[in-house]
Design a binder for these strands. Structure first.
Lengths: 229, 229
DNA sequence: CACAAAACTTGATCTGTATCAAAATGCAGC
DNA sequence: GCTGCATTTTGATACAGATCAAGTTTTGTG
């Protein structure tokens, strides 16, 4: 069983396509391909022309920008089911960010032509693409607000609260950081050092208990109160 | 001649609709309405349910978030031809920002139902909506980069350079600020005081000459060099 | 299991930017 | 052209967060 033959079942599970016209799958699958990206390798670089849409099947991809002095700032971390690269695709611009695998990752690549064709012919699919873009647009707006309005500590608290599963109503919650702390720090626009200190201080205030990547929140409402206060 | 009768010709000129199927205009126009918003009045507030899409015909609208301590942060300033409110519309979420007229403004309001219907039936229109969203998404990403990577001075320089008309290749350029300085400062995530000082310092370095809202850039390449250096 | 490399923590210091307070300018309406 | 309010500028001070320089822990790998 080669890689191509697995494509139909792989793309079927994607939120972007799920429940749509069945013939759409076949047309898409014919032009889709699987990309295996080892940890640390790039999917595309800032400035590269757009070849299509990428969807994460397995693993993690970070979108980042180079700072000029050799460092990097992480814009977004994407896990399974997330689609990225649409903006450049539909605008016909080169990519404005670099996409790099945080761990060994598997992606589906959908060609530009297939995307444009299906958007033109299938209204439901177009709506999915729009919804996906709208969601990411909102997330960017929210990030922007966080950087402009919140202190470093507040951004960390905000981040921790977002890591709590939605339906969870417990007072005590254990959160496991989904990525290396350096990547999270960068996404929160903090230096790794500062992030580390903030976690220590939150620990000292008994708002959280840190041990490695495991963080226990003993009193969620109290932590939430840090944001409004 | 009442306001309704002017709608068809008004929406015809919009970038979002221009050059599309002619019957689309008629269907749209039937459900569109004109909004006159006086300076300082809000179009919608953060938390309001979405009623549709707004397009600026005349004037200026700023998107902002409240900081809690009574102040506000400007996310974006939109002029004629700009469409906003799509994200909330397509996600079915309440608005995540407040929209307020910076000056007396005229908007076209397109209903949610009309938008969804046309996206489903007209692939070209869907593509326009996607492109508009993609462009705004990219602008947010760029803003995010600016806040994360650049100093206040660099953000101001970046802003000034973006104010130069595209096709202009002159070395000496006069720019007139399109809004009050306080609004610009807020959008650049600076205090008004800091923004003022930056302009003064750039003036002292002979990179610009400020007189009120008029700013002369005597040597565009040299100003541009501030970003990379 | 051991060792090297990567990730994380801690400390000391320095800088960009906010904040508060007040003066100066610009502008709209009478 | 004066009056009064909004906008902008300037000054003095304070603080959040960056940077540089060690350490310490964790992790992957032969």
């Amino acid at each position: 069983m080669n890689a191509r033959s697995k494509i139909p079942e792989m793309i079927q599970g994607l939120a972007l396509l799920e429940g749509l016209d069945s013939q759409l799958y076949e047309r898409m699958a014919a032009e889709a391909s699987i990309q295996k990206v080892p940890r640390g390798a790039t999917v595309f670089r800032q400035g590269d022309p757009s070849t299509g849409l990428h969807v994460v099947i397995m693993g993690q991809v970070k979108l980042l920008m180079n700072t000029g002095n050799g460092h990097e700032k992480v814009i977004e971390v994407l896990g399974p089911n997330a689609a990225f690269g649409e903006a450049a695709l539909f605008l016909g611009h080169p990519h404005s960010v670099t996409a790099e695998a945080v761990m060994d990752t598997e992606l589906v690549h959908l060609t530009r032509e297939a995307l444009l064709r299906e958007v033109m012919t299938d209204g439901n699919f177009a709506l999915r693409v729009i919804t996906n873009l709208a969601r990411r647009f909102n997330r960017r707006t929210e990030d922007l607000r966080n950087y402009m309005l919140f202190s470093g500590t507040q951004r960390v608290v905000c981040f921790l609260l977002r890591e709590i599963p939605d339906e969870c109503e417990e007072t005590v919650v254990d959160v496991t950081l989904s990525t290396r702390k350096g990547v999270i720090a960068s996404k929160l626009n903090l230096t790794q050092e500062h992030f580390s200190r903030i976690l220590r201080d939150l620990g000292a205030a008994a708002l959280i208990e840190v041990s490695g990547a495991r963080i226990r929140i003993p009193d969620v409402p109290r932590l939430r109160a840090c944001l409004t206060g």
